[in-house]
Nucleic acid binder design. Sequence first.
DNA 1: CGTTATCTTGACGACGATCAACCGCAGTGG
DNA 2: CCACTGCGGTTGATCGTCGTCAAGATAACG
Lengths: 245, 245
Amino acid sequence: MNNARKDIHNSDIPVLCRACEARHRGICGALTPAQLVKLNQHTKQHSYKSGQELQSADQEVERYSNILRGVVKLTKLLADGRQQIVGLQFAPDFTGRPFRRESHVIADAATDIQVCSFPRKSLEELIGESPELEHRLHTQALEELDEAREWMLTLGRKNAGEKVASFLFLIASHVDPEIDERDGPISFELPLKRSDIADFLGLTIETVSRQITKLRKAGVIEVENNRTVIVPDLDRLRFACERET
Amino acid sequence: MNNARKDIHNSDIPVLCRACEARHRGICGALTPAQLVKLNQHTKQHSYKSGQELQSADQEVERYSNILRGVVKLTKLLADGRQQIVGLQFAPDFTGRPFRRESHVIADAATDIQVCSFPRKSLEELIGESPELEHRLHTQALEELDEAREWMLTLGRKNAGEKVASFLFLIASHVDPEIDERDGPISFELPLKRSDIADFLGLTIETVSRQITKLRKAGVIEVENNRTVIVPDLDRLRFACERET
DNA sequence: CGTTATCTTGACGACGATCAACCGCAGTGG
DNA sequence: CCACTGCGGTTGATCGTCGTCAAGATAACG
């Protein structure tokens, strides 16, 4: 359909978009140079410090964003303050809920982040003229659904130790998407602090801390500065995701 | 785009589709009479008894289905047999995972069901020629994602009593989609047996049974034949979803 | 350096799992 | 016809995991 995209010269593309991951692996890859130019008239790049809110619950969605750098957490709240993280998003994910005026989750910066945002109206117009754009959004939604369901299994049926191991594995797989074929050592930074991990796993901070200690003492992981995790043997971590250590 | 759909005569539409809910609220509403006719050359109606499997895990997806009657449960398994229901689907939902060769969940008939199925290839071809079809699939995926996230909050942060109340409320809202504006009495049949409810809530059968008894004794619900539930006051049930009774 | 956020560790208790017995009901077959 | 079996559900007693409360350790920061 959009063979206009073939053999385009870089100079047709807005400066900001040229080096942008969202144009390669994200939703903007669906757009022609002309559409990118048009969208660019309304986009804004923005940085948020860790903890700042992009979007609060039940509030009208004004702008959608692509994540350029950092990690965004999606949170749900109960009236008495209990909270659960229901999704994590990484660059170059699209964030926001298409076709609905208000969001049912809170979007927070889990780390310092950088996003490229655009008005709701721009997205809706572009979807109308580009089926390929909707296809990319659809694909991302299906992947988030797969992840959410995988996580429901973890929340509902795994014990604390398995939950923590599963979380570490989840983060590891975002550092290395090819992780399923690997089995050697790997190391990464945790993008979440303990209280976020607890909210993600449906546990308390104390339990998370104890289980991390346990994995450390069992030699499944090493920890530096509370944030850097080294996994000497991925298979042992994988094992810990489904069986008590 | 598809204004061919306007002012069509019923006789253009395949017999099987005429009274079908999927043509009104389901994905087939996106199709022109011609497309319906074409799809109809490959569709099969099929019934399954409660407990029968439509699709097993990690097995290649041959056919997708629309649910015409009954309830389908989507289940995930752990190696040692623990299981979690990660989704429930009702008529006229589309069931199956587009754009992926194998399914990561098991699809079971929770009740006796009736479906209309079609080959993977047919769907993929139709998506190519009908952006409106992909839009409907996208919309359903987004709604399932919303539901999954709502359920993650329940799994991660609610206690047994709140979980059971939330489950009852979930079923009630599928019987009456306008439930948010209601507050009077309502009654319905539970489509799931106790063990399924337990697998949906991340609990054991015994705990589910005890909590139902507790809600019954507190007067929040009445139960007949273990399957029929009467809710005299919806607000009390709503209350029980977030606070200990 | 003091102050505050973040994380760890310990002691204890509650909630839900586990194990076991029992009830009601529908089939099934002698 | 009744005995037997299997299935779904309930209830009770006991145990273990994880939450709660409290204190300290470590790191981050002005």
